[in-house]
Design a protein around this nucleic acid. Structure first.
Lengths: 97, 97
DNA sequence: CAGGAATTACAGTATTCACTAAAATAAGCA
DNA sequence: TGCTTATTTTAGTGAATACTGTAATTCCTG
């Protein structure tokens, strides 16, 4: 594994390694959600969620779609989805699909 | 996925998300290595590597074995090994075993 | 026991990160 | 247009992180 690849992967892991961001990614696993939807399941402010979403967007992990004055977010990087599935299997053996 | 599990997983990801630590984990994938061995492949000081190893130990990801005045490190958490394998497949498709 | 190699522990500093609060933008609706 | 809702942006602060350099520790070897 080349150093450049390690650097790139470390960045991705870093952006996933915050509890709020990791939870957002789990929530987005099967569906797209607005900031408000996420807000209902994560205890923090909308502004804070927006900031975390920005970090995930900058990393190219998620994308968004605008509808009325809602913004629906979804995971674009299939590799991230695969990683989340794998991590759930490894670290939450009782997880149900 | 429960919040506690997410918190725990986020911590693990965080400890893996530093380029030096991620490289160390890749190096330890198939063998055990001393600080000096690692030093030869990572451009930094021994003290710095030692500190990063401490972080991985505190997280329970790696373990060590003492022999003479060398300390050999190895990955203890099989789940971490599986994750590294998965990540290599996902992010380094040209990777050869 | 003295010398040296390998590793760790301990400050100090500089950078990065996370959260809060407040202001700004955008879009629907009366 | 004015009001409300949804989201983003910005600025500021306190905390966490990373690296450097140096001192301390451990343990082999002669």
């Amino acid at each position: 594994m080349k150093d450049e690849q390690i650097e790139a992967l470390a960045k991705i892991l870093k952006s996933m390694s915050h509890p709020i961001r990791l939870k957002i990614l789990c929530l987005l696993q099967n569906r797209e959600l607005s900031v408000g939807d996420i807000r209902k399941q994560v205890e923090t402010t909308n502004a804070n969620i927006s900031q975390h979403l920005n970090i995930l967007r900058a990393q190219g992990i998620i994308d968004f779609r605008k509808e009325a004055n809602f913004i629906y977010n979804r995971i674009t990087d299939k590799r991230i989805l695969e990683m989340i599935v794998k991590m759930q299997k490894l670290f939450c053996p009782d997880h149900k699909e």
